[in-house]
């Protein structure tokens, strides 16, 4: 019997026509193909495999069905371990001496559901001055001095929520490779869009009740501006670093960065409107270094 006759026999055995078989195989494979990112001829190979089992299909096809493992096994990276007996703490506060920022009302009337979801009036938060003349939402981080040290990526995700048609938090830090979890607590659709320049830029739609989305940034980038493609007033800023030494000031304008190895560093403070300030610091073993920043306003 030649192969064609064998094939017809196979089709007869199945009691159906070939197009139906292909259909079934392809339909069954489509989701798997998408999930595993397998080569596009994979369904065909499975199909040929099935024929091969029943009829003794050609050798090359079955050979191809077992792709060789080409990716070399990489040795696990050696992470820098901080010696707890010499680790230091960085503290400080960010003062503000500029003019009191005008309270600028945000108009959400373009999306009535947002007006409702925000609970109360929304005001511009590009400069948030605390009661004690300090600034909130300042991203403080070690800008240099850690070169050559590789730090382990935290397993816990950093979450940014879309709540009341606002990003919460507005300013956040994350390590390279760490999971950014994006949630939507609103009854409206948002479209989060980090305008990354070093990392890959992306945007993603998230409707009411949609599950969280998880993304990673692979390269350090300070700061990535984030917007919502649907609600023009929504902004956030993400600082991506390849180490864990960063903090965001809160209601009292202070920051604390723990577990810092002794060494010479540049400590930077970034504010979305007022720019970045840098200070050189020398961290002695087990020291507690206080560094204060002052922003004068625009």
């Amino acid at each position: 019997m030649n192969r064609s006759t064998l094939f017809i026999e196979f089709v007869k055995k199945l009691g159906t026509d070939l197009s139906a078989v292909i259909q079934v195989v392809e339909e069954a494979m489509a989701p798997m193909q998408a999930r595993l990112s397998v080569p596009n001829f994979f369904p065909l190979l499975i199909f040929c495999g099935a024929i091969a089992i029943l009829t003794g299909c050609s050798q090359p096809a079955t050979k191809e069905a077992q792709p060789k493992a080409t990716a070399k096994q990489e040795a696990p990276p050696t992470y820098f371990k901080v010696d707890p007996s010499t680790a230091a703490t960085l503290t400080g506060s960010v003062r503000y001496t500029g003019p009191r920022p005008a309270r600028k009302r945000i108009d959400m009337s373009g999306d009535p559901a947002c007006v409702e979801a925000h609970h109360g009036r929304a005001y511009d938060e590009s400069i948030v001055e605390n009661r004690n003349r300090t600034l909130a939402n300042v991203f403080v981080y070690i800008k240099s001095g850690l070169e050559g040290k590789k730090f382990e990526t935290p397993k816990t995700p950093v979450t940014i929520d879309q709540q009341g048609c606002w990003f919460r938090p507005r300013v956040l830090g994350i390590q390279t490779g760490q999971t950014l979890q994006v949630t939507n607590s609103d009854p409206v659709t948002h479209n989060i869009h980090p305008l990354a320049e070093v990392n890959r830029e992306w945007n993603h739609s998230q409707g009411q009740g949609d599950p969280p989305i998880s993304r990673r940034f692979v390269k350090p980038e300070v700061m990535i501006r984030v917007k919502c493609n649907i609600h023009s007033w929504m902004h956030a800023f993400i600082g991506v670093l390849d180490h864990p030494y960063f903090a965001v000031t809160g209601e009292d304008g202070t920051f604390e960065i723990h577990n810092v190895p002794p060494g010479d560093y540049v400590l930077a403070a970034w504010q979305e409107e007022l720019g970045t300030q840098e200070q050189k610091i020398s961290v002695a073993p087990s020291g507690k270094i206080e560094t204060n920043f002052t922003f004068k306003g625009k």
Binding site: V188, N191, S205, G207, I230
Partner: peptide, 30 residues
């Protein structure tokens, strides 16, 4: 239908094969 319109207004979901006609569009709530 509102979620469909919002989806398009936001520019969909980025991916390497996104149609060139799909982009963020400025549409007011009205």
């Amino acid at each position: 239908l509102k979620s469909v319109v919002d989806f398009y207004a936001g520019g969909g979901n980025s991916n390497p094969y996104l149609d060139k006609e799909i982009k963020e569009i400025k549409l007011t709530g009205r």
